[in-house]
């Protein structure tokens, strides 16, 4: 009885089979799959002598996430605007969008409206973002002596906006703090007791700057550099915060150097 080699219908030609026998053991193990169907291939397996020991990397300590964005909560500004409580509307014009006030600003109750507009600083969605930012600027510019008594109520919305750690929101809030300090003479002094609430996040971003070497930052006019904005804001707080301002700032941000004393 003669032993006859029977090849499966999908196996390669006899010449190819002979060639495969002279190949490395790796290839031969791959070719040994007799009943292989086209399209499905068995993964290559290494013999134990060729296996490398698995490298186990030390993952290190977990990330603290100090700069991680935190999702802002829905603000009361949005709620009030959707309910129709705020006397404002967006005016879409070819010469840039503006806010249209349905009531004169001078007649508004600052204790109610100014904290509401400051709460809207955490908004990133239109039209709330635009309305809150521009509305707060309008209120500050036309507030005068009405602003100082409201300062304690502004601390919480400012803190909430800074705590989102979203750079866009942080920049906007820092610009608004600068405008607030310059809006009336005693606002800076009134803000000094609340440095402990506001300054820690500023300390976090103080050194977040662009390392350009001798390059030029062409986007300076957009004021999006957080490190620069923090430095400007701290200097304004020191200049307008009275005698105790520098000590209080330095207590929370030890790396801050005075712009008056040096």
């Amino acid at each position: 009885m003669s032993a006859r080699l029977t090849l499966p219908p999908t196996s390669p030609a006899p010449a190819a089979a002979a060639a495969s026998s002279s190949m490395s053991p790796l290839a031969s193990t791959a070719g040994a799959a007799g009943t292989r169907t086209p399209g499905t291939r068995k993964p290559l397996t290494l013999s134990s002598s060729l296996k490398k020991p698995k490298e186990t990397r030390d993952p290190g300590p977990p990330k603290a996430g100090a700069f991680k964005k935190r999702k802002p909560k829905p603000t009361k500004f949005r709620r009030f605007y959707e309910r129709g409580d705020l006397p404002i509307a967006v005016e879409h014009r070819a010469l840039g969008n503006r806010i249209r006030w349905m009531v004169e600003i001078e007649k508004l109750d600052y204790h109610h409206y100014l904290p509401t507009f400051f709460a809207g600083l955490s908004e990133t969605q239109e039209p709330y973002r635009f309305l809150a930012y521009q509305g707060a600027i309008d209120l500050l510019e036309n507030g005068g002596s009405k602003i100082v008594p409201v300062v304690p109520q502004l601390v919480l919305p400012i803190k909430a906006a800074l705590n989102t750690r979203d750079e866009e929101i942080v920049c906007r809030t820092l610009i608004m703090i600068q405008r607030l300090v310059l809006s009336a003479p005693d606002v800076g002094v009134a803000l000094t007791p609340y440095f402990r609430q506001i300054l820690p996040i500023m300390g976090l971003y103080k050194n977040k700057n662009l390392n350009l070497g001798d390059g030029i930052d062409y986007g300076q006019r957009f004021r999006r550099n957080v490190g620069d904005l923090v430095e400007e804001t701290l200097q304004l707080l020191e200049l307008n915060g009275g005698e105790a301002a520098y000590i209080n700032i330095n207590y929370i941000i030890p790396t801050y150097s005075s712009c008056v004393m040096n």
């Binding site: 509307a89 005016e91 070819a94 010469l95 840039g96 503006r98 806010i99 249209r100 006030w101 349905m102 009531v103 004169e104 600003i105 600027i137 309008d138 510019e141 036309n142």
Partner: peptide, 25 residues
């Protein structure tokens, strides 16, 4: 104040007409 006397627009102390709007004035 607008023509109907119903709404008010407030303007800043410094320049607001940027160069990009000049050709429309």
């Amino acid at each position: 104040v607008d023509r109907e006397g119903e709404s008010f627009t407030y303007w800043r102390k410094d320049r607001e007409c940027e160069d990009k709007y000049l050709h429309k004035v």
